[in-house]
Computed example of a mutant assay.
Amino acid sequence: MSTTRYVIVGAGAIGGAIGGRLAHAGLDAVLVARGEHLAALRSTGLRLRTPEEDVTVPVHAVGGPDELELTEHDVLVVATKTQQAPDALTTWADAPVHAGGRVVGTAGERLPVLTALNGVASETMALRYFARVYGVCVWMPAVHLTPGEVIVRGAPRSGMLHVGRVPAPADERDEALLAQVQQDWTAANYDVPLPEDVMPWKYRKLISNLGNVFQALVHGNGDTGPLAERTEAEARTVLDGAGIAVTSDEDEAAARSAGFTMHPVPGVPDDVGGSTWQSLTRGTGNVETDYLNGEIALIAHRTGQAAPLNARLATLARQAAASGMRPGAMSADELAERLGLA
């Protein structure tokens, strides 16, 4: 039996699914949450709804590091939205780690951190505070809208999680940790490839996530396909111009075909959307688009290129979140006009 304990910082859609699956498999996991979600996890556990099951899993839930004694058997998994990652990382990096009844250092010094977030910025954020950082490329259709509940629409496996040391390559200690993560997370119903370099996978996922903003802003109110194609083409040009390695479409398609597929979850509408849609639906006041479309704008600006479509989309998403706009409040034609493509 694994002696590793996974501390899931940010038990929303992705973190809740990972932590809930680990707990359901009998592995040691702590879910870090806040507000009504934390209260629900503590009082009734985590309701995990999938195409094949509807179970409530008892979980160990805390609000922060002051409620937990960390040891050298802990692995931190940051699964917040990217815009929330700096606060999460600084909160946990200086938490004391105990061994033999005494403090032996901080989490940043002693513990590994896995970054299970969209985009490609969180690994660099984490390296500012943690000596051992491992990127996670998350392929998992998960939804969190109700306190104490997570919906996962992948089956028969819940998702695919590529994990690797950042920066690559891994040494013997890294390989031992990655092997343990692969063993535990596979037992928790995930496919867990261990690529030599995880970042090309994360950049390919970044391209896929550029469409999140269309789903959130328009949400079926017109055809955004042509806009999405031009946005993705712009991003690919920028990444190529910057010399950034991106996993090929063929390799990505092959990996996906060997993993999970999406299925309906009983009682869940088919039009439930992704992470940006969920942020607008919950009215959080912010979205991660600055680290998706905005990441392409950043790379373009750093390398003397231009990415006007992605930059404008990041602005529109920011404004929508700040104003409390609901998904679908904008038509595809209106969005095209605001992008200068009408």
Score class of each variant (00 low, 15 high):
Ala187Leu: 07
Glu175Ala: 13
Gln180Glu: 14
Pro156Val: 01
Asp191Ala: 07
Leu161Gly: 11
Trp185Lys: 01
Gln183Pro: 07
Gln180His: 02
Gln180Arg: 13
Thr186Phe: 06
Arg157Leu: 09
Ala187Met: 06
Met160Asn: 10
Val198Pro: 12
Pro195Ala: 05
Pro169Phe: 13
Gly159Asn: 06
Trp201Arg: 11
Arg157Tyr: 08
Arg173Ile: 05
Asp174His: 09
Leu194Gln: 05
Glu172Met: 02
Ala179Lys: 03
His162Met: 07
Asp197Gly: 15
Val198Thr: 14
Val198Arg: 11
Ala187Asp: 13
Asp191Ser: 07
Met160Phe: 01
Trp185Asp: 02
Leu178Phe: 05
Gln183Lys: 01
Pro195Met: 08
His162Thr: 08
Gln183His: 15
Asp191Met: 03
Leu178Ile: 02
Asp197Ile: 04
Val166Glu: 04
Thr186Gly: 12
Val181Asn: 02
Met160Cys: 01
Met160Trp: 03
Pro167Val: 13
Gln182His: 12
Glu172Lys: 01
Arg173His: 12
Asp174Ile: 11
His162Asp: 04
Val198Ile: 15
Pro193Lys: 06
Asn189Ser: 06
Trp185Met: 03
Ala170Met: 12
Ala187Phe: 01
Ala176Gly: 10
Leu161Asn: 04
Glu196Gly: 15
Met160Ser: 08
Asp191Phe: 06
Trp201Met: 09
Pro193Cys: 08
Val192Met: 02
Leu194Gly: 04
Val192Asp: 00
Pro169Val: 06
Ala155Phe: 14
Pro193His: 12
Asn189Met: 00
Gln182Glu: 03
Ser158His: 09
Ala176Tyr: 06
Asp184Val: 00
Asp197Ala: 14
Gln180Pro: 09
Pro169Lys: 07
Val181His: 13
Asp184Leu: 00
Arg165Asp: 00
Asp174Ala: 05
Gly154Ser: 09
Leu178Thr: 03
Asp191Tyr: 10
Ala179Asn: 04
Glu172Asp: 15
Ala188Leu: 03
Glu172Val: 04
Ala187His: 07
Tyr190His: 11
Gly164Val: 08
Ala170Phe: 05
Gln182Cys: 02
Pro200Leu: 08
Pro193Ile: 01
Arg165Lys: 10
Arg173Met: 09
Gly159Phe: 11
Asp184Glu: 05
Val181Leu: 11
Val166Ile: 13
Leu178Gly: 11
Met199Leu: 14
Arg157Ile: 10
Ala155Thr: 13
Gly164Pro: 10
Val163Leu: 07
Met199Ile: 09
Ala188Glu: 00
Asp184Ile: 02
Ala168Trp: 02
Ser158Val: 06
Trp201Gly: 06
Leu194Thr: 04
Glu196Asp: 15
Pro200Trp: 13
Asn189Asp: 02
Leu161Ser: 00
Glu196Tyr: 13
Arg165Met: 09
Arg165Glu: 07
Leu177Gln: 11
Met199Ser: 08
Met160Leu: 10
Arg173Thr: 06
Pro156His: 04
Arg173Tyr: 01
Asp191Pro: 03
Ala155Gln: 05
Pro169Met: 10
Pro156Ile: 00
Gly159Leu: 02
Tyr190Thr: 00
Asp174Leu: 05
Pro200Phe: 14
Gly164Glu: 04
Trp185His: 11
Leu178Lys: 06
Arg165Thr: 14
Thr186Lys: 09
Gly159Lys: 08
Pro169Leu: 11
Val198Cys: 15
Trp185Gly: 03
Ser158Trp: 14
Ala176Met: 04
Pro167Trp: 13
Gly159His: 04
Arg173Ala: 15
Gln183Cys: 14
